[in-house]
Computed example of a mutant assay.
Amino acid sequence: MELKEFFPFWKTLTPDQQARMTASARAYTAKKGEVLHRGQADCLGLVCVQSGVLRAYTISDEGREITLYRLYQRDVCLFSASCAMRAVDFDIFIEADQESLLWIIPPEVYRQLMEQSAPAANFTNELMAGHFSDVMWLLDQVLNKKLDARLAAFLLEAADRENSDSLSLTHEAVAGELGSAREVISRMMKYLQSEGMVAVSRGCVQLVDRAALEQLAGDSLR
């Protein structure tokens, strides 16, 4: 996938700007589970997902993770270039959910492009707004939705993502996704199993009754 396919404003750039973007971009293969960006401590650069899946998450003061959103093929990861964004002053971590092929553009190159190109700046603002919309949706879920509904929605979305109703998941990993405690997730899994919605074994969750899970999830499904 060519770099220009990620940027709808590409044709508005000068030949010199296009050449600098192309020359500075490097291809990188991230292994599953690799943490690419560790909040403000890092400034990897703008990441463009050629294939694979990235997970953006944050960590509370107590060390509890919660997934904010995921990035798929053709998505652009803005927060990995946080040092180029003056308004970004909080920690977001980026991890490869599966082996992923990426383009990485140095932050100083993209920052200069935003200063020179109004379409590039507008694209960046729209991207930022989209990410914050995802975060606000998640905040509403955490504050206003029951955990059993969020868990059902997560399992259904994970099954769709993996194209399988058999999921290799630990309770600790699910807790990290939902910002909960492992013990709470274990109790919820037992409840879903007692209701015949899932079958749980060590490191594995089998979706048994998708219709019941969908009903439970309600508007927690995106």
Rank of each mutant, 00 (worst) to 15 (best):
177 E>T: 08
50 Q>M: 14
48 C>M: 10
20 R>I: 14
75 D>I: 01
65 E>V: 01
74 R>D: 14
53 V>G: 07
46 L>C: 04
179 G>D: 01
39 G>E: 07
6 F>W: 02
92 I>T: 10
71 L>M: 08
48 C>N: 01
197 M>L: 11
110 Y>D: 01
67 T>S: 12
80 S>Y: 04
160 D>V: 06
73 Q>M: 08
98 Q>P: 01
9 F>V: 06
95 E>K: 02
11 K>T: 13
66 I>S: 02
121 A>T: 10
40 Q>M: 12
193 Q>C: 08
48 C>E: 06
16 D>W: 01
16 D>T: 13
98 Q>C: 15
86 R>V: 13
39 G>F: 07
74 R>M: 14
120 A>N: 00
72 Y>M: 04
8 P>M: 10
49 V>L: 13
99 E>Y: 00
66 I>M: 07
66 I>E: 06
16 D>G: 03
11 K>V: 09
41 A>I: 03
30 A>R: 09
114 M>C: 04
184 V>S: 15
14 T>Y: 03
83 C>N: 08
63 G>D: 06
40 Q>S: 02
61 D>W: 10
57 Y>P: 05
42 D>I: 00
213 L>G: 03
121 A>M: 12
169 L>Q: 12
48 C>T: 05
88 V>Q: 13
44 L>Q: 11
31 K>D: 14
116 Q>E: 15
96 A>H: 03
204 C>E: 15
173 A>M: 00
34 E>I: 00
104 I>D: 03
198 V>T: 03
180 S>C: 12
179 G>Y: 05
1 M>K: 09
91 D>L: 12
181 A>F: 05
175 A>T: 12
106 P>G: 00
219 D>G: 00
207 L>I: 15
